[in-house]
C-alpha cells in the first residue's frame, strides 16, 4: 500500500510536468492541443538518439529534447497554430488533430515502427528502505521533473518573459498596451509547453520504450491530469499529475494492469460530468 503510494507519487511527478505543458498551452493560447502527446514522442526520440549517438544519459539528453522540441514548437505555432488562434474551436480541433496524425505518420516513416529503449547502468538498481523499494530510474525521473517544475515556476514568476507570458494569458490587450509582442509570446508559450512535455518524455525513457505511437498511451493520462488540476493552471497540473500517478498505481492493487487506462478514463469522464468548469474555465 505504502509502496504503491510512493510509486504513484514518483510516476505522478513526471505526469505533472508532462501535463503542465498542455495546460500552459491552453492557459495562454486558449487552444486545446490534441497533438500535444506527439511532442512527448519527439522528445523521447531526441533523447534516444542522443543516447545512441552521443552516449548521453536520457536524464541529460532531456535538456537537448527540451531545446530542440522548443524550437520545433515555436515554428509550428508561428506557421500553423497562429492562423487558428481567433478561429472557431472546430478549426482549432481540425488543425491540432491533423497535426497529431501528420507527426505520428512522419515519425513512422522516419523512425520505423519498432520499439526502442535505452540501457543505463541504474536501470534495475534502486534503494531499499525497510519494506519499500524505490527504483532508481523512477526516482531520478521524478527528481528531474521536480527540478524542471521549480525552474518553470521561477521563470514564470521572476523573469520578464515569464511575466509577459502570464500577462498575455490574463489579458492579451492589456499586455499589448504595455509593449508585449503577443504573437511572439504565443510562439514562446507554445514552444515552452511542448518542450516541458518533451522533457518529461525524455526522463522516463529509462523505464518506457519509445515508438511512433507512444503518444497514444499518454493522451488520456495528460487530459485527465489537466482536467483534474483545472486546464490552464500550472500548479494544478502538477498536483493533478501526482493524483493521477497515485490513482494509477493504487488501481493496480485492485484491478488487473490492463484496466489502468480505463480507470483514468472513468475519472476523466466523472470530472467532466461533475466539474466541467475544470475544463472550460480552469485558467
Amino acid at each position: 500500500m505504502l509502496q504503491a503510494l510512493i510509486d504513484g507519487i514518483l510516476l505522478g511527478g513526471v505526469y505533472g510536468v508532462i501535463a503542465t505543458g498542455l495546460s500552459l498551452v491552453f492557459g495562454v493560447l486558449g487552444v486545446v492541443n490534441f497533438a500535444h502527446a506527439e511532442f512527448l514522442m519527439l522528445g523521447m526520440y531526441v533523447a534516444w538518439f542522443a543516447w545512441r549517438w552521443l552516449g548521453l544519459d536520457p536524464l541529460l539528453g532531456s535538456v537537448l529534447s527540451f531545446v530542440i522540441v522548443f524550437a520545433v514548437g515555436y515554428v509550428v505555432q508561428r506557421t500553423l497554430i497562429e492562423r487558428v488562434l481567433k478561429a472557431p474551436p472546430a478549426a482549432q480541433v481540425f488543425l491540432t488533430v491533423g497535426l497529431l496524425i501528420a507527426i505520428e505518420n512522419a515519425a513512422l516513416m522516419v523512425f520505423g515502427s519498432e520499439f526502442r529503449s535505452v540501457s543505463v547502468p541504474y536501470q534495475v538498481q534502486g534503494y531499499r528502505l525497510g519494506d519499500i523499494f524505490i527504483g532508481a530510474p523512477y526516482l531520478y525521473a521524478f527528481a528531474a521533473a521536480v527540478i524542471l517544475a521549480a525552474a518553470l515556476w521561477l521563470f514564470l514568476e521572476r523573469s520578464w518573459t515569464g511575466r509577459a507570458i502570464r500577462a498575455v494569458a490574463q489579458d492579451a490587450m492589456a499586455a499589448t498596451l504595455v509593449g508585449v509582442d503577443t504573437k511572439r509570446t504565443y510562439g514562446l508559450a507554445f514552444g515552452l509547453g511542448v518542450a516541458l512535455t518533451a522533457f518529461g518524455g525524455a526522463v522516463i525513457l529509462p523505464y518506457i520504450t519509445v515508438s511512433p505511437t507512444v503518444g497514444g498511451q499518454f493522451v488520456v493520462l495528460m487530459f485527465t491530469v489537466v482536467v483534474l488540476g483545472g486546464l490552464g493552471s500550472v500548479a494544478g497540473a502538477l498536483a493533478g499529475g501526482i493524483m493521477v500517478g497515485v490513482v494509477q498505481s493504487m488501481s493496480t492493487l485492485i484491478f488487473p494492469i490492463q484496466l489502468q487506462n480505463l480507470c483514468l478514463f472513468v475519472i476523466f469522464i466523472a470530472v467532466l460530468a461533475l466539474r466541467p468548469q475544470g475544463l472550460i474555465k480552469g485558467a
Binding site: R163, R166, A167, Q170, D171, M173, A174, A175, L177
Partner: peptide
C-alpha cells in the same frame, strides 16, 4: 501610455 476602458488589470498578478 494607455489606460483602457474597463481598467484591464492583470487579475491574477
Amino acid at each position: 501610455g494607455h489606460v483602457p476602458e474597463g481598467r484591464h488589470v492583470f487579475p491574477r498578478m
